[in-house]
């Protein structure tokens, strides 16, 4: 539990950080909140020769409104996200989910950018960002580009980030007024990753589901958008048969690993239940 030696860099701008990353190559890793990288380093599963600490870059922090989007700087902590009235009002599901991430101490350090960029299937924010239709801004030596959250995740710890790129912000479209949302997370204890979790964002019209997106956490090597499950509930009033159909459609795309949280069969089963419960709770909140 003792990391190997490394050099420490603290750039003051994104440009400097990007330059360091491209100069130092694959031996360099950006450091955000450190809650994934540092434990990996202590176990020597990660042995970067250079750490590029992003805490010195003021431009990476803060939440602002840009048109119909909320733009969240990558170094914004979960705690800052929780403190934001804009977030609580416009997209309560982010507020709800952030409260389920670990404990206050972790949330003071853990960042949105680190949470979504690391590609850890256990992290909660990626599935939420997918279901909210968020995009990520990636900056590298060749300039900036935007990638949809739904296109970002390629495998466990594999993402669309190219070598030398840093995820600098997350842009989230504000959901329609009167939408309903819910994040249902089954976990063994505070601080644990989800055994299975489901994010639902929907709108209702005349007692029936008008639009719906469903994101799934930790039931596959990447976060998932459960498109078929979402389709199955459109135009329904979420009757028992529909809920069952949606849960089954969601379970069909799950491929969790068996681990101490339970065997595959259990994790899929409770994944379906999380979908059902999130749908019901989101619908109850929709106006």
């Amino acid at each position: 539990m003792i990391p190997g030696s490394f050099s420490y860099h603290r750039p003051a701008s994104v440009a400097d950080a990007v330059k360091l990353l491209s100069d130092l190559g694959e031996d360099a890793r950006p450091l955000a909140g450190g809650h994934s990288l540092v434990p990996m380093m202590k176990l020597r599963l990660a042995t970067p020769a250079h750490l590029i600490d992003l805490h010195g870059i003021a431009a990476l922090r803060g939440i602002s409104r840009s048109g119909n989007n909320l733009v969240i700087g990558a170094m914004t902590t979960q705690h800052e996200l929780l403190a934001s009235e804009d977030v609580a009002k416009a997209m309560p599901i982010l507020h709800e989910a952030a409260l389920l991430i670990a404990d206050p101490q972790v949330r003071y350090r853990g960042t949105i950018g680190g949470n979504v960029a690391n590609g850890d299937p256990g992290n909660d924010m990626p599935a939420l960002m997918m279901s909210l239709g968020a995009t990520y801004r990636l900056e590298g030596s060749g300039g900036a580009r935007d990638v949809a959250a739904a296109d970002f995740y390629q495998g466990a710890y594999f993402t669309a980030l190219e070598p030398g790129e840093i995820l600098t912000s997350v842009s989230v479209p504000v959901p329609a007024a009167g939408h309903g949302s819910a994040y249902e997370k089954l976990k063994r204890k505070v601080g644990d990753y989800a055994t299975a979790a489901a994010a639902v964002v929907l709108t209702m019209a005349g007692g029936k589901v008008a639009t719906c997106s469903i994101g799934l956490t930790n039931v596959h090597e990447t976060p998932l958008l459960a498109t078929d499950a979402a389709k199955a509930v459109i135009g329904t009033s979420l009757d028992a048969a529909t809920l069952k159909k949606a849960a089954a459609a969601a379970e069909a795309i799950m491929a969790p690993a068996a681990d101490a949280r339970g065997p595959v069969e259990y994790r899929k089963h409770v994944g379906g239940i999380m979908v059902t419960r999130a749908l019901q709770r989101a619908a109850a909140k929709a106006k």
């Binding site: 404990d103 063994r188 204890k189 505070v190 601080g191 644990d192 681990d259 101490a260």
Partner: peptide
């Protein structure tokens, strides 16, 4: 309710940290 030192069938100990070895917090 869950605190266990578990080995897999080939003798690897799979509960080597507080992630999987159940140590309840005040919340639980």
């Amino acid at each position: 309710m869950g605190q266990e030192i578990r080995y897999d069938e080939v003798g690897n100990v799979v509960t080597g940290s507080f992630m999987d070895f159940f140590m309840p917090t005040a919340v639980e």
